[in-house]
Computed example of a mutant assay.
Amino acid sequence: MPSPIPITRLLPNQSLDLGTCSSPLAKYSFGNTLQVPAQRPHGKVASRLWSTVIHWKELRSVEPVGSGGFGSVYKAEYLGDTVALKRVKKCTKNKLASRQSFWAELNAAHLRQGNIVRVIAATTCVPVDFGDESSIGTIVMEFVGNRNLQQIIYGCAEPLGEDRWLRYSADIARGLRFLHSHGVVHLDIKPANVLVSSEDVCKICDFGCSVKLDYGCEESAISPHVSHVGGTYTHRAPELLKGEGLSPKADIFSFGITLWQLITREQPYTGDRQHVLYAVVAHNLRPSVQDQPVFGTERGRLCRTLLGRCWSGDGRCRPSAQELVPRLEQLRSNV
């Protein structure tokens, strides 16, 4: 089953001073994944484990970067490092969904891998001088940069050659392989949720739709209490559109759409949203690989075959992330 949202976790915001704030997160057991400092830490924030304490007085130069449906993101200095600060807000139309989004963001908080954005700290305690009544909690993460794949694909004129998009896609696949090996399904893989660092490395971010499968469980029914499951409709796997069980293979479908976008630099679908949703399920609609010169080369034909497997309507026919990584690395080695 997906990771439950215990009613005891749906905690109200608390008004505290600007000193060290110990989060209600610390009251719950997450195995050995938490690090709760007994005193104010010194030096860098590069810690192996994430913390349930944010030292608010150590935040400097907080400036807005962007905002979305469930929160706002800021760039800041924290304990000597540049970090990203995400404040999750209550959604007035669906308060439960916004709370679920906050807790889902922490499904991968204990994981460390180069293609996943690292969580440094998270808390539901937000000081009055920093937050407001609409805030559910705050997450401190590594600052990757200001660019994401959506901007690179559609918003700039710089070349996106074969070597580059193959490298990007292999980065995403490696991140998915690591997540899936730890039972985390992202459920919203798309270009906007892949950040690109100054070293040109892709890192998966925004886990607000993610679920944590039980140990040893390869598939799970969709819980009626997890109202935010599904992600972006253009990248959503058919089984999720039909309300069937979710598995890591849902991420592989989304990866296939993302890979097509990297290759073609075009939008996957046009037309009415409901028409697209219906056609994906009922008529096996997929982004076009016809009349695309890039798919005419030998490597292009191999990519076309790989895309067909990734976005198969039957999740069992899709490759795992474990299979994807060597396949993409092999394609890249032939560039």
Rank of each mutant, 00 (worst) to 15 (best):
M1Q: 08
M1K: 13
P6L: 09
I7M: 09
I7P: 04
L11I: 12
N13W: 08
L16C: 10
G19C: 06
T20L: 13
S22P: 01
L25H: 11
L25Q: 06
A26I: 07
K27P: 00
N32R: 14
V36Y: 04
V36D: 09
A38W: 09
P41K: 09
H42E: 15
L49Y: 12
W50S: 00
S51W: 00
T52R: 03
L59Q: 01
E63N: 12
G66S: 11
G68N: 04
G71S: 10
G71M: 03
S72K: 13
K75S: 07
D81Q: 15
K89A: 12
K90S: 03
T92M: 11
K93N: 05
N94A: 14
L96G: 05
A97Q: 14
A97G: 15
A97W: 00
S101D: 14
L106A: 09
A108T: 03
L111M: 10
Q113Y: 15
Q113S: 12
V117M: 04
R118Y: 05
A122H: 02
T124V: 11
C125Y: 05
P127T: 14
D129N: 11
D129I: 13
F130C: 06
G137K: 13
I139F: 07
M141I: 05
E142N: 07
N148M: 04
N148I: 00
I152G: 00
G155C: 07
G155F: 00
E158S: 12
P159E: 15
E162S: 12
R164T: 07
W165S: 02
R167M: 03
Y168G: 00
H180I: 05
G183K: 04
G183D: 13
V184A: 02
V196Q: 02
S198K: 11
S198W: 04
I204V: 15
C205D: 02
C205G: 02
D206N: 06
F207N: 03
G208C: 03
S210G: 03
K212H: 11
K212Y: 04
L213P: 08
Y215P: 08
Y215S: 12
G216Q: 09
P238N: 03
L240K: 01
E244R: 09
A250Y: 02
A250N: 13
F253M: 01
E266N: 14
G271K: 04
D272E: 12
H275R: 10
V276M: 07
L277E: 06
A279F: 03
V280N: 00
A282C: 07
L285I: 08
V289L: 13
V289A: 06
R299D: 03
G300M: 10
L302T: 08
L302Y: 01
C303N: 05
L306A: 11
L307S: 06
R309M: 12
C310W: 02
W311H: 01
R316T: 13
C317I: 04
R318Q: 14
R318D: 08
S320H: 13
V325M: 10
P326L: 09
L331T: 09
